[in-house]
Amino acid sequence: MSEAGGAELTVARIAALAGVSPPTVSRVINGQSGVAVATRQRVEAVLREVGYRRRDSAVSFPILELIFHALESLWALEIIRGVEEVARERGQAVVLTEMQGRMTPGKAWTEQVLARRPTGVIAVFSELTAKQQAQLATRSIPLVVLDPTGEPLHETPSVGATNWSGGLTATRHLLGLGHRRVAMLCGPLAWPCCRARLDGYRAAMDAAGVPVDPGLVRDSTLYVEGGLRDGAALLAMPDPPTAVFTSNDLQAFGVYEAARRAGVRIPEDLSVVGFDDLPFSRWAGPPMTTVRQPLVQMGATAARMVLDLAEGGTLAQHRIELATDLVIRDSTAPPSRS
């Protein structure tokens, strides 16, 4: 390991400033265990103060690290578009990591990202452990979370959308058309965005004085298969819904297929509202009414935030939520039966 001014001298100087031994500083720098939390924090504070950087782990060009729990839909591609637009403008390359459905990256990713020394890390639908966040902070690598899977923490900058408002607006639209048997397909309720969409649905139903039938609210998965399975179950009920609000467009597309198989017409027999406004939604048959989530802008916002932090700037807001909008197309209409 080489360091400006000599590695040994630099480590020794940091150790003296922090009041610890050089081996302790080395363990903190290399992300090793065996260091008390208070001691680690003291060393990390000194590292940040002196602007410590390891030359052997520096990359030859600036990169943004973009980590996803899964890359299985156009949802992820829309976010990537937004990140790359900003990255190009500011001279950054983008490195993608997919965790194949895991919410927290493993030790191998941590070692690799610390070796790459990116300008910053954007975690999408992912959560880094406290230790991983501390390791990034030690190397002055800022972190921004997009649509966190846990409660947004003020100390971790994050970007999201107005999910509650989106759920409220979508349900109000269906109620305004005259629907009263309105079903809701949820996503994982451990995720704040899915819980907020369900809460928006419940708030709209409550405000309209329409009781929520528990049988019409289904925990589903955010994929076509989930919409197909749970949509088929809803349509097989003795008193099926006349409208379905889904947590994303993929679920809605699954409901479309369930309706086709059951001989149910959209929107004549069943109104459907999605969420996201992915590019394919306008080409569905019929074109899908959906809540537009500004995915490209969310990716761009996260990229600007992390780059501003990397350049030593401060954020006016640590939590940013971008507005959602209802896009009315041809999959919703007044019910043919009350």
Rank of each mutant, 00 (worst) to 15 (best):
L74I: 02
G312K: 05
A300T: 02
K131A: 13
M305P: 09
Y201N: 03
R117H: 14
G254V: 03
P148A: 14
G227T: 05
L185C: 08
E89Y: 05
A134I: 02
L235S: 11
A130K: 11
L322F: 08
G299V: 00
T314I: 04
A123M: 05
Y52F: 15
S338A: 12
Q41T: 07
G209Q: 10
Y223I: 06
D206C: 05
P214G: 10
S338W: 06
T314S: 14
L114M: 15
E89C: 04
A333C: 05
A259Q: 10
H154F: 09
I14S: 01
A16W: 09
L47E: 07
R218F: 00
F68V: 03
S331I: 00
E65Q: 15
V20I: 04
Q92R: 15
L9P: 05
S140P: 06
A333D: 00
S26A: 15
L309Q: 11
G285W: 10
G166D: 09
E311H: 04
G227C: 12
G120A: 15
R218C: 04
L326I: 01
L136A: 09
L175F: 01
L136H: 05
A243G: 09
A18M: 09
L9E: 14
N163E: 00
A284C: 15
V327I: 15
A183S: 07
G299E: 02
G226L: 10
A323C: 05
P62D: 14
K107L: 12
C186L: 06
D230C: 08
C193T: 11
G200P: 07
A243D: 03
